[in-house]
Nucleic acid binder design. Sequence first.
DNA 1: ATATCGATTATCT
DNA 2: GATAATCGATATG
Length: 214
Amino acid sequence: MLALDNVAELENARILSRAFFARDPRKVARELLGKLLVRRDGETEVLAGRIVETEVYLGRDDPAAHAAAGRTARNSVLFGPPGHAYVYFIYGNHYCLNVSCMPAGEAGSVLFRALEPIFGAQQMARNRGLNPSPPGKWTRPLTIGPGRLCQALAITRSRDNGKDLVSPASDLIIMRDGFRVPRITATPRIGITKAADRLLRFVIPGNPFVSGKK
DNA sequence: ATATCGATTATCT
DNA sequence: GATAATCGATATG
């Protein structure tokens, strides 16, 4: 499988099934915690991060979701088959990555909010325009937050929107490696104004790469 | 330490 | 024309 074979961190990892995503995104968001988001660039470069923070966006019954008003040119991936990338541009500056859930025809997705770098942190820093040299805490700002993690993995709408995230041929895939999350906490979603009270954000509590205070 | 604010553009009303 | 699933810089206690 191209360059993945050479990465020790991924030698036991397998791509998730399409069926994993053909379900209620509330279930998918919880179970995505501890999985791996893997970016492949060319023949040699591999970037990988463990998913430590997710958010759920539903369909018509969720006013905060892009799918709330129905299908448009921008959000059409959300209504397509499960396991595909929905990438959108926000605040004139940032990209955010979702994976489509539910069977084709029904909207619903999970937003990737934070990763723990597992492989390729040096290149992630370069993608972010940061100086990779100072040792110690330099990995923290790489992948905390939906905009930052997209920049770290070089995810853009033109390159990745609509991409199949469970195809071995894709350069952006989601994998499992047997890692078990100790615990899951649900909180309100970040940065929204509508339906702000619903507990649709999921984190691995205590993980240092979860966004938020301390 | 927390709070506020400006950047910058695709998308929708 | 207003808004937005954000980030990073600056101001303030």
